[in-house]
Design a protein around this nucleic acid. Sequence first.
DNA 1: TAGATTGTTAATCGATTAACAATC
DNA 2: TAGATTGTTAATCGATTAACAATC
Lengths: 205, 205
Amino acid sequence: MVTDIPDIVIGRLPIYLRTLYRMAEEGSKTNTSSHDLGERLGISSAQIRKDLSHFGEFGKQGTGYNIGYLISQLEQILKLQEEWPVVLIGAGYLGHALAHYHRFQLHGFHIGWIFDDDPAKLGRVMNGLPVQHTDELEAVIQREGVRIAILAVPAGAAQQITDRLVAAGIRSILNYAPISVSVPADVHVQYSDPVVQLQRMTYYL
Amino acid sequence: MVTDIPDIVIGRLPIYLRTLYRMAEEGSKTNTSSHDLGERLGISSAQIRKDLSHFGEFGKQGTGYNIGYLISQLEQILKLQEEWPVVLIGAGYLGHALAHYHRFQLHGFHIGWIFDDDPAKLGRVMNGLPVQHTDELEAVIQREGVRIAILAVPAGAAQQITDRLVAAGIRSILNYAPISVSVPADVHVQYSDPVVQLQRMTYYL
DNA sequence: TAGATTGTTAATCGATTAACAATC
DNA sequence: TAGATTGTTAATCGATTAACAATC
């Protein structure tokens, strides 16, 4: 039952979760339904039920899903009930913003180290963390057992840094660099190139 | 032939384009092939040929695609040969980074106005632009005919700002706010919630 | 010419949706 | 009970891939 879930399904779970958190905050009700959720997300109720059914039965006929219970189940599925240490590479404008992004902390992602190789940036403090030289990447990742990295470096540096991250033990990379990096099959990369995201919409203008 | 292209195809074109720009920079060859491109992107050559075939015939049997020509064709398809004015809403850390993101300018996206409603931020200058009050959103968008917006505001403000953007004429929104916004069918939203992007990968750890 | 590679067709694969029995 | 809503099945829809004739 928990074998070989389509990645596109995994990708929707955080969206469901995000909406459930909001419903919990609003506090106006303890339950929701696939129809209710779907309407808020612009997704069909059938798809939501199908997605959830990959992992178990979380609802009740007639009454739908208990919001708090569904949140805890999704957190468990996505392994969000522990704190994940994260390394950030790149201390430019984007790195600076990510170092201060308070929602990471709020959701259990703890950026604990910032790296750059620009001498002008070394030693600067961002949100309490000193910018370290990328030379120390491997030592930190191995010592701390870090599995997640955020890449905010120029395109030219991205592949080389990625290779080093992967060799040191990183298995998930959030990549803001404008380049497709090549990684082994067991490493996951999420791409977030702001230019690509805009270019994808101009077609429709 | 140019009717009803799947959005997933449109979404890959900027990725192809990005790789072609890099090939052009490298300058080591004037031509490429679907196989060559596919290898760099981790995509099958058949998919690349199929995607391109929605728009015309850009290659030659035996020799593949001329890099410069394919770039200009993709730019034309994606309407990237003009400069697009962009409004940025939200002058927090993320807004600050986006205001300084030099690749926007490089690719024809010109952030011309920054808005926020926090009195502490009004008047601050970011990359040469003063932070204006959101009250002036509509006037600017209409006067300047802006169609693209970047949203970097808290979740609580996002839907209300979105409604105002859409009413004023915005048709493409790059949304960094952690919420699914509801928009009319002719408005496109690209979501980029850093937390969601990380949460999507922890499942595999 | 021989080798390479396109654009396209048909087959395959996978994802979404509609429908409904089960049941709260 | 009657209404609501689940989880699941089967049907539909859409996207990817394999294969190949055409041709540079």
